[in-house]
Simulated assay, not measured.
Amino acid sequence: MIRGLRVVFACFALCIAVWALLTGIEDFSPYALFIISAIILFLARSELKANRKLNAILAFIGTSLILLVAIYSLI
């Protein structure tokens, strides 16, 4: 389930990135960052399930930093 969501979000982020590169419109970059942070959040959840707590903590920190950048770029 979580792996499937990661794949769907990754495909969606890839489509947004390719579209932004082809058209030159960079207004959707924060939304792509939100999607990437969701992917990393799912990764952290799966790491937590596998009892790899250090990797999960680092992924949660990475998620929070990416969300901070995405929110800052929206403002």
Rank of each mutant, 00 (worst) to 15 (best):
L68I: 15
I35A: 04
I25C: 01
F9D: 02
I71R: 11
R3M: 05
L41R: 09
I2C: 07
T23S: 12
K53E: 10
F42M: 09
E26H: 11
F60P: 00
A10P: 03
S29C: 07
R52P: 00
G24K: 01
R45P: 01
A70W: 09
V18T: 04
S29L: 13
C11D: 07
L67E: 08
A50N: 14
S46W: 10
A70E: 08
L41P: 02
S46N: 13
S64C: 12
A38Q: 11
L22H: 01
A13W: 01
L65W: 12
S46V: 11
K49W: 10
L54S: 13
T23N: 05
A59C: 15
C11T: 10
L5K: 06
I57K: 14
S29H: 11
L58M: 15
I35E: 02
I40P: 00
A10I: 05
Y31F: 14
V7A: 06
A44H: 04
I36K: 03
W19D: 01
A44N: 09
G62N: 12
M1I: 07
I71C: 11
L68N: 09
I2E: 04
F9P: 00
I16D: 00
L65Q: 08
D27C: 03
S46Q: 15
V69I: 15
C15N: 00
I25F: 05
C11Y: 05
D27G: 10
L21R: 03
I25S: 00
A50S: 15
C15F: 06
Y31W: 14
S46G: 10
L21S: 01
M1A: 09
I2Y: 08
A56C: 15
I40V: 13
L41V: 10
K53A: 11
I40S: 02
V18Y: 02
L74K: 15
L68Q: 10
S73Q: 15
A70C: 12
F9E: 03
F42W: 03
L43W: 14
V7L: 07
T63F: 14
S29V: 10
L5R: 05
Y31D: 03
L14H: 04
A44F: 02
F28D: 02
N51V: 14
L21I: 02
I16E: 02
S64M: 13
S37N: 12
S29R: 05
I25L: 06
R45K: 13
N55C: 12
L48A: 13
L5Q: 05
A44S: 14
I39Y: 01
I66A: 11
I25V: 07
F28E: 01
L65R: 10
A59W: 05
P30N: 05
S29P: 01
L14P: 00
A44W: 01
R3Q: 06
E47F: 12
L5V: 00
R45I: 14
P30A: 03
R3L: 05
V8K: 11
L43N: 11
V8N: 09
L54G: 10
M1L: 08
E26S: 03
L65H: 07
N51T: 14
I61N: 06
I66D: 00
I39T: 05
E26D: 08
E26Q: 09
M1D: 05
R6I: 11
I66H: 04
S64P: 01
K49Y: 12
T23G: 01
Y31H: 09
A44P: 06
S73M: 13
A70G: 14
D27V: 12
A56F: 06
S37V: 09
R6W: 00
V7F: 05
I71N: 08
F12Y: 09
L48C: 06
E26M: 08
K53C: 07
